Amino acid sequence: MVRECNACIEPSSKLKRCSGCHKVWYCSITCQKSDWVRHIFACKPRRPINTADHLALAVRNDLLPHDPQTCKDYGFDRALTAENNSKLFGLYIGLIERMDIPAKTINDWRVRGVLVEEIKAAYSQIPAQSRGGYFPWFLQNQHLLTTSPQAATDSQLNDERDIMIRRAWHFTGGAETDSPEDIRTSIARMPRDKRMCHLFYELLLSKWYPAPFHSLWIPFGFCSCANEAEEMCLGRLYQGLITKCTFDEFCDAFSSARILNLFHEKGISVNVRNLGDALQGHNTNKSVWSLKQFAIRTDEENAKAAVRSPFAFDYGFMNCRNDSEKQALKKVYRTFFERRDADPLALHDAAIHGNIFGYIRSLMKLNAKYERLMKNPYPLPDVE
């Protein structure tokens, strides 16, 4: 019987079944080990799943962790700013991805109360010139992983959020004398598009940009980026743009789907494939962008809610008979979007012509079951 590897999705008749859940198959030990970071959450592991497993999954998906206890255990809820969260995340990427330190070991460090010391020891084994910038930053911010009096309090967190809001408020022309309460009230009364722009300014002025789990990831075109490096580049271009235009200009361009024109008017060259399509209308985006967001983000609760979105109709999720089929279909789409040659608009075109299976199969090997799962009612018949 031909099945597909749960890691590389290669069909084969010589796969070995996972001994834990007996539901998935692998073509090699390498694939099984690689997929364990994700599969542990669907399997029956011999040990309880811990927050280090959530951290490792976040690293694998290149997305900041959002599990509350994980954020608490590994310092993200005390990092205060988006910039510091990014640097802390980079530190863990170095440990988990580059040094190949397993989640089980990192959990053991935390439980024994030696996380800071072990992180220092791990990085000390790397030549100083190869440690990157995250470790020197960590040496100045070790308190994020301790429970010392230096650790941030809830009031400090609220103060930092107020700082981000006030920074954007003053940058966009708000009075220096306005209180935090006045600022929040004024923002709440703004039209929806203007509120979205203000929130975007808060991120940009904190040297950050929307990630896939953020509500602004699609409206401001980050969904069109091929990878995180391109997202960072687009974020820097936006940071340059807001210094060359007024807030009203930016809001008007956003509401009228003219952001790309505004870039050009201000002399900023933007070379992000499909950005123009993503910015055409933030209220009428093609469902393929919502599909991409759903496929690559990791929040299971949000993922289940997202299946009720329009893309579920367009891309076959209504054909799934159970959660296992939904997850399998999601995984195929995630694999597609992770490819260097992935073209979301070509996938959209295939969808409206009722040929999703044929298009994706032309790029990667697929089990025949996906022909049923990827069916949709398109092309719609002509109405006379």
Rank of each mutant, 00 (worst) to 15 (best):
N285V: 03
M99H: 05
R339D: 11
F294Y: 09
A278K: 03
A42N: 04
Q69M: 11
K207H: 15
W169R: 04
T146D: 07
N84P: 14
F313C: 12
Q293K: 10
S362E: 04
R161G: 12
N376M: 03
A368R: 05
D67N: 08
S19R: 01
R273S: 05
F135E: 05
Q293P: 07
A56W: 14
N319K: 04
N376R: 15
P48L: 00
N107L: 12
C18K: 01
F337G: 03
D162I: 10
C197E: 10
I242H: 13
A121F: 15
L380A: 04
G235Q: 11
A152K: 10
K292L: 11
R189E: 09
H143A: 10
P212Q: 02
P212C: 04
G75S: 10
D349V: 04
C27E: 06
K120Q: 15
E83G: 11
F41E: 01
T177Y: 12
N285E: 02
V383H: 06
Q125M: 14
F247K: 04
V111C: 08
S224A: 04
K207W: 05
A303N: 04
N271Q: 09
I49F: 00
G240H: 15
F213W: 07
P219V: 01
N227E: 08
E325P: 06
R321M: 06
A42D: 02
F76A: 08
R192V: 01
R361Q: 15
E301G: 13
G20S: 06
N61Q: 13
L95D: 07
F138R: 00
A253Q: 03
C251Y: 02
G133R: 06
